[in-house]
């Protein structure tokens, strides 16, 4: 099976899963107690107003019918209206999602670069003080929640040593770049507003770093374990005996076959970022999709909840497909399809 075929299959499969998820979320959010219309209007609103809103939202119709109404809207690109912001949800998402994508992309980058390099070096210098330090750092990284890192980083690098800004996407007073993708860094670069791009980048360094710590720690452990394991394999012993320099072995010959496991794990970590980002976004007062989603849940903002869940699902799928492509690039068995003979 070729890689393209595999990816297409994967996407089709994911669409199926997303359908299932949408049904599940639809049912769950309708079963949990609390009347969305009442919550949207507040306890003081007169009963007739609540009744009107219910009608407007089709809440008076049976569940199955409502689901299909929602589905046909979705096909037209309409995600419904948020009960809280009273805006089309597509608008809300267009505002919050690009901000989150920026943070998550940078987190994924930090995760890979920090995790793999620390792992590689501690494998090469295993048993030395360096390995010990990385081990302690990794355990710390794995057990410490992202928001704790966020608070720590703010204290250290915003207050104590003021290098990075504390909150927001951009320094107040600086105009946001003209909207193209909604991602300030990209838009800034595209429109030649390099100062804005740099400023926006500066704002996401700390939150991204805080978010990436757990995944980076995990990746470092996995990379090290996998490399130390493979270092005793005959194919590495052989090149060592033939006098291939250690540097080349650790950077290339040993690293490449050892990356599949840590990168597969990273796919899960990256996908989980969207969910984990909530408290970090809160610490940095960063207008991202996680905060939006959590607030929607607390307010039983039906369509917003469903939309955010679907977006997380899509994000998960994309992260997985990207990782699959990277793994196929690393491992010829995946790229060229199954073993010819055992």
């Amino acid at each position: 099976m070729s890689l393209t075929k595999y990816i297409i299959k994967r996407i089709v499969y994911s669409i199926g899963v997303l359908f299932g998820v949408s049904i599940l979320i639809f049912v769950i959010s309708n079963i949990v107690p609390g009347d969305p219309a009442r919550m949207a209007l507040g306890p003081r609103a007169p009963e007739w107003a609540v009744e009107d809103l219910r009608k407007e939202m089709n809440l008076d119709k049976p569940l199955v019918e409502r689901y299909f109404l929602w589905l046909s809207d979705l096909m037209r690109g309409d995600l419904g209206e948020s009960l809280r912001s009273r805006r089309p949800i597509t608008k809300d998402i267009a505002e919050y999602l690009p901000a989150s994508i920026e943070i998550i992309a940078l987190s994924a980058f930090f995760m890979a670069v920090i995790g793999i390099n620390l792992g590689r070096l501690s494998a090469r210098f295993s048993g030395t003080w360096f390995d010990g330090v990385v081990r302690i750092l990794s355990y710390t990284g794995i057990v410490t929640p992202a928001f704790v890192w966020a608070i720590l980083f703010v204290l250290l690098f915003s207050y104590l040593i003021p290098i990075f800004p504390t909150t927001g996407r951009i320094t107040p007073g600086l105009a946001a770049p003209p909207r193209i993708t909604g991602m300030y860094i990209i838009d800034g670069l595209l429109t030649g507003n390099f100062r804005v791009a740099l400023n926006a980048f500066w704002h996401i360094v700390l939150p991204s770093l805080a978010l990436s710590m757990g995944g980076a720690a995990q990746a470092a452990r996995m990379t090290r374990a996998s490399m130390v394991d493979n270092a005793e394999k005959d194919y590495i012993l052989a090149v060592r005996a033939y006098g291939v320099p250690n540097k080349l072995i650790y950077r290339r010959l040993l690293l490449k076959p050892s990356l599949v496991a840590p990168i597969s794990i990273m796919a899960l970590d990256i996908a989980a970022l969207l969910g984990n980002a909530f408290l970090v976004e809160l610490v940095f007062l960063y207008p991202g999709i996680s905060r939006y989603g959590v607030e929607a849940m607390l307010n039983k903002d039906l369509f917003a909840i469903i939309s955010v869940v679907l977006i997380i699902g899509i994000g998960y799928t994309i992260a997985n497909v990207v990782i699959d492509v990277i793994i196929a690039h690393l491992d010829p068995r995946v790229r060229l399809g199954g073993a010819k003979s055992a």
């Binding site: 005959d234 194919y235 052989a238 010959l253 076959p257 690393l330 010829p332």
Partner: peptide, 8 residues
Amino acid sequence: TASLNPVF
């Protein structure tokens, strides 16, 4: 099998 690097 073990003495050849699988990814090169």
